[in-house]
């Protein structure tokens, strides 16, 4: 069993944020705010939700704690066990897989020293596979914390991991010289515009 902190409370900023979310819903429907509140709590708790935090939110929204546990265990983005400092998820759905996501997964496992679903021994990364991230035009996609890193190959994946390990935060977006999701290798239409 994971070691659980005994108590949890939102800090002042997060409390204000939580109040803003709760206020969106009519009186008696506060439970609707459970998803954003859990997200806020998870960010405050270094990427995972201790039971105290779930109970705290249940109390705040006047829900039975089990209803919050159900939500947390249902969604993949919530974690009820401690995670690495950075969350790295590789999309392995068909378009990304066709473009080589399997190699990226192997490169990540090798570079981090842990398997999919585990946290690296240095505690910096948690590695996961994810179903379609919806950015197929830039496949393969790796999702680190809140950002998408696109057009990744095994080499750039290793470089990303090394950068994060050093505490840097590389610019999100395509890892090649491609401009956002414009055609790779430069524009192919309207090339004469402006002449």
């Amino acid at each position: 069993m994971t070691e659980q902190p005994a108590t949890f409370a939102f800090d002042a900023d997060n409390q204000a944020l939580a109040d803003k979310h709760i206020a969106k819903y009519p009186e008696g429907r506060q439970a609707s705010a459970v998803l954003p509140l859990l997200d806020i709590a998870q960010r405050q708790c270094d990427g995972w939700l201790p039971r105290a935090a779930m109970d705290y939110i249940a109390e705040m929204l006047d829900m039975a704690p089990i209803r919050v546990y159900e939500v947390v265990s249902f969604y993949e983005m919530y974690h009820d066990t401690p995670r690495g400092k950075h969350e790295l998820r590789v999309c392995t759905t068909t378009p990304c897989w066709l473009r080589g996501s399997a190699d990226i997964v192997s490169a990540c496992e090798d570079e981090m020293g842990c398997k999919v679903g585990e946290t690296s021994p240095d505690g910096v990364f948690s590695l996961g596979e994810f179903e379609c991230l919806g950015a197929c035009v830039n496949a393969p996609v790796v999702w680190i914390d809140d950002d998408y890193y696109e057009d990744v190959d095994p080499d750039s994946a290793r470089k990303l991991i090394q950068a994060f390990r050093k505490g840097e935060r590389p610019e999100p977006g395509p890892m090649t010289d491609r401009q956002k999701s414009a055609p790779a290798g430069g524009p192919t239409t309207l090339t004469g515009a402006g002449e």
Binding site: A64, I66, E70, S73, F74
Partner: peptide, 9 residues
Amino acid sequence: VEVLGATGR
């Protein structure tokens, strides 16, 4: 007594 639930998916 709201203690039972369905966890996981």
